[in-house]
Amino acid sequence: MRDWYLLYCKRSEQERAVINLDRQGAECYYPQVVVEKIVRGKRCECFEPLFPSYVFVTFDSEQLSFTTVRSTRGVADFIRQGALPQIVSEELVYNLMLNEDNNSYEHMFESLPQQGDKLILEQGKFKGLDAIYQEADGEKRSFMLINLLGKQVKVSVENTDLIKNKD
């Protein structure tokens, strides 16, 4: 039986891990979303991992050992429950695949504020500060302008730390 597992990869090495695991006979999956970014001064649409640094993997443990998978270039380790790698629901992985095929992740980014929206940060190290939304930022997902010591400073903030519209 082939169970699905979740791997934590070294920063920005998901593709390397997937290529090397594929060569060894493992099936890998990491969902990606299309994100608008400014690259070299031009706006473009780029693919980014939905879960940065994480890859779902399934393999036959009789043909490929856990140690071999963990030692693959780009892989840091399995996500574990105690000493054993955590098994991920097959249904979860296939639902992620289905949503990616149907572009169902787009709704996740529709709820982001628009540039210039005034907000109050609800969590994190900047909790309670007034902020002005600037733009989406790959991994962190949002750049905000906050007032620190009477000066506006641009910081990157997790979307979970946002959003309480300031009236």
Results as ranks from 00 to 15, higher is better:
Ala17Pro: 00
Glu106Gln: 14
Asn20Cys: 01
Glu27Met: 08
Val57Phe: 00
Gly128Lys: 06
Met144Phe: 07
Phe51Ile: 07
Asn147Met: 13
Trp4Pro: 02
Arg43Lys: 15
Tyr5Gly: 00
Met108Ala: 07
Ile146Tyr: 07
Ala136Tyr: 12
Arg73Ser: 11
Tyr8Trp: 10
Val69Ala: 02
Thr58Asp: 02
Pro85Gln: 01
Arg70Lys: 15
Asp137Trp: 12
Ile120Asn: 08
Asp167Ala: 09
Gln152Arg: 14
Lys154Tyr: 02
Val69Gly: 00
Pro52Ala: 04
Ala76Arg: 14
Leu149Thr: 08
Asp77Cys: 10
Ile120Gln: 12
Ala83Gln: 13
Leu6Ala: 09
Asp137Asn: 12
Phe78Lys: 04
Lys151Pro: 00
Arg70Pro: 00
Leu129Gln: 13
Cys9Trp: 00
Leu6Phe: 00
Leu50Ser: 05
Leu121Met: 12
Met108Pro: 02
Pro113Leu: 08
Arg23Asp: 09
Asn165Gln: 11
Leu119Pro: 03
Leu7Gly: 00
Leu92Gln: 06
Ser65Leu: 03
Leu21Thr: 02
Arg23Thr: 05
Trp4Ala: 01
Thr160Asp: 09
Ala76Ile: 07
Ile132Arg: 14
Gln81Phe: 08
Ser71Leu: 08
Arg2Asn: 10
Ile38Tyr: 07
Phe47His: 11
Met97Pro: 03
Leu84Ala: 13
Glu36Asn: 10
Asn99Glu: 13
Val39Ser: 08
Cys28Asp: 03
Cys44Thr: 11
Leu21Phe: 02
Val18Pro: 01
Leu7Val: 01
Lys164Met: 09
Lys140Ala: 09
Asn95Lys: 14
Pro49Ala: 13
Glu27Asp: 11
Thr160Trp: 08
Ser53Met: 07
Val33Tyr: 06
Glu27Asn: 06
Pro85Cys: 01
Ala26Thr: 08
Met144Val: 14
Arg2Asp: 06
Glu135Leu: 09
Leu112Trp: 08
Gln14Met: 08
Arg141Asn: 11
Thr68Ile: 09
Val155Ser: 06
Lys125Ile: 13
Leu6Asn: 01
Gln32Ile: 09
Val75Trp: 05
Phe56Arg: 02
Ala131Glu: 06
Leu98His: 13
Leu149Met: 11
Lys151Gly: 03
Gln14Ala: 05
Ile132Thr: 15
Asn102Gln: 15
Thr58Tyr: 02
Leu21Cys: 05
Gly41Pro: 02
Cys9Ala: 05
Val18Ile: 15
Val153His: 06
Thr160Arg: 14
Ala83Asp: 14
Ile19His: 10
Lys151Val: 11
Glu100Leu: 03
Arg23Ser: 11
Lys42Asp: 08
Pro113Lys: 06
Ser61Met: 05
Ala136Arg: 14
Glu135Pro: 02
Arg141Asp: 10
Gln86Cys: 09
Thr58Gly: 04
Pro85Ala: 01
Ser104Gly: 15
Ala131Met: 04
Gln123Pro: 00
Leu96Tyr: 10
Tyr105Ala: 06
Ser89Tyr: 04
Leu145Phe: 09
Ile146His: 06
Val18Ser: 07
Glu45Leu: 12
Lys127Ile: 11
Gln81Lys: 11
Ser71Tyr: 01
Glu15Leu: 12
Lys127Met: 09
Ser61Trp: 06
Gln24Cys: 06
Thr68Ala: 14
Phe66His: 08
Gln134Arg: 14
Leu145Met: 12
Arg70Phe: 01
Glu27Phe: 04
Cys28Thr: 15
